[in-house]
């Protein structure tokens, strides 16, 4: 077996055993709209990288806190998790 220590024991002071951990997909997203920063007087005509990133991020998760990435909750055999 493998044993290691991480995280914290229970808030009440009771010990704990943790049997499962999540996996991870860590990404860096870069939005590039212009060759360089420019005066914001031009915001009337030029695309803004900041707004675009905000738009991208806001379609990843709803205001209800539910992740909106399609099929995130569908497993590889095509059935819903829950």
């Amino acid at each position: 077996m493998a044993i290691f220590s991480d995280s914290h024991y229970h808030e009440s002071g009771r010990p704990a055993l943790i049997l499962g951990l999540k996996g991870m997909l860590y990404l860096e997203l870069t939005v590039r709209e212009l060759a360089g920063d420019c005066h914001s007087m031009k915001a009337a005509a030029l695309p803004g990288a900041a707004w675009r990133l905000v738009a991208l991020l806001s379609m990843l998760k709803g205001e209800d806190g539910v992740v909106k990435i399609e099929k995130l909750l569908v497993n590889r055999s095509g059935t819903d998790y829950y």
Partner: peptide
Amino acid sequence: VLPAEARAKIDI
């Protein structure tokens, strides 16, 4: 300023 680039790091 009108930023040319925007970056975010996310963990799923």
